[in-house]
Design a protein around this nucleic acid. Structure first.
Lengths: 241, 241
DNA sequence: GCGCCGATGGAACGTCGTTCCAATGTATTG
DNA sequence: CAATACATTGGAACGACGTTCCATCGGCGC
């Protein structure tokens, strides 16, 4: 193929036009994941999109698991790269939570990728972003881990559930509301004696606002944090007088 | 093989001794998942353990995804089949949370199986178990979904993260504390300017008590619920006088 | 005792992640 | 500028997977 030609690069290591690179591979992976879902990321489909063979990719990425983590990290880093200067810690947490919620909604595969890479860079980024405003709220050291954990798991849990719904709907060839409709119908047919709560919310499943419910949960946790702060302040005040 | 012989069964449908059945398949699947992890469940390994061929299993189970959900449901049902009569709603929630935490710890694959089956029976069981004491706490209808969601996602999130740690450790051939040690070491080497919180908790990772931290998070959410209740009661009292 | 029919289990198919290696094209050397 | 050294490439091949298919078999009704 004569379309290949040499190129002088500042760093000097790049060889060809359109040369394979970690960045190009990750970008193509994200495209593939967004357009074809979690199962759409395949070394064959990826190599075809990059006009190369499956083996070539292994020169830049050690394996599929690392590729998924890298793609995930790229999305997460983009989502968290927003300044929230001047906002209250509560508003920062709410904004952060919504941004993550929307990100996972737009890239459903990110949710499950995160849960399969505990302690890795994308997760650490999120941990850190949540911890900063939590510390700003004055949560004492010994409660920080539990507090951050509560927020982190709630955010990723709800986001992931939403994403799982979307993924499953895609797999079944339904759109989102059709899928929720089928779940709602299945819930309605449960034994009311054994599953009273599930039955009663079956109807809400179709009409409720996911984002609003999500925020209500965040506020619930924030109230718990505030309640701890108040009781701590009261105790300190009592012992001081 | 002459070890097969007929058997008279009350219902009359069973044909052979050791006949294949949904129950036997699920039981064997749980054994396999417990002993060899999430990747250990294979139709080949399963059929070998059941002394049959891979094709025979499809007479009782539609596909692998359903098999995993069924195995998961079996474990979840067992975990939730405990009476908590006489306990306060708070104590019931705490007990339920700990039981789920320990169950996922003992069967790490349950965590990821749950996250891949939103709205299915095992998830509904858990939803219902959490909703019952939440309703008993007097949470009003419009807040129930968010409240139950906060608890549910926190419990499954922390449990799942724990489980993921265990799974990953197994895959890497390390035991749990060695794995946590390697994560802790990786976190320690992060840029302190960019990841101050993560760095500061890196040390705690090895020494902290997972269950205690988990319960602290549950209490945080319970405090949030209680705080909502109090402010609602205050408002009602003010408008009444 | 015989034939029927569902249950069975092993072979086979297509796809996956991954490995391997000959061929390619770039950089360095003489 | 020609020849060599070497990293990158890409396509073939491997083993394992989920799933399908169908010849065979075993228990039941006649």
């Amino acid at each position: 193929m004569s379309r290949c030609s040499m190129v002088r690069h500042a760093g000097g290591t790049r060889r060809r036009l359109q040369a394979l690179s970690r960045e190009r591979i990750i970008e193509a992976s994200i495209d593939l994941l967004d357009s074809s879902g979690e199962d759409g990321l395949t070394f064959r489909a990826l190599s075809e999109r990059l006009s190369t063979g499956p083996g070539a990719i292994y020169g830049h990425i050690p394996n599929k698991s690392e590729l998924l983590i890298a793609a995930c990290d790229s999305i997460v880093a983009r989502a968290l790269n927003v300044s929230s200067a001047g906002a209250t810690p509560e508003a920062t947490i709410r904004g952060l939570a919504l941004r993550l919620f929307d990100t996972i909604d737009a890239h459903p595969w990110v949710g499950s990728a995160l849960s399969r890479a505990p302690g890795r860079l994308p997760m650490v980024r999120i941990l850190e972003s949540i911890a900063r405003p939590v510390c700003a709220l004055g949560v004492p050291d010994e409660e920080q881990w539990a507090t951050v954990g509560a927020l982190l798991n709630y955010i990723l849990g709800v986001g992931g559930k939403n994403a799982a719904n979307g993924q499953l709907a895609r797999t079944l060839g339904l759109d989102r509301s059709d899928f929720l409709g089928s779940v709602s119908a299945a819930w309605s047919e449960l034994d009311p004696a054994e599953y009273p709560f599930t039955q009663s919310v079956a109807g809400q499943l179709l009409t409720h606002d996911d984002r609003a419910d999500f925020l209500a949960g965040i506020d619930l946790i924030l109230r718990g944090i505030d309640s701890s702060r108040r009781s701590r302040a009261a105790k300190a005040g009592a012992s001081r007088r």
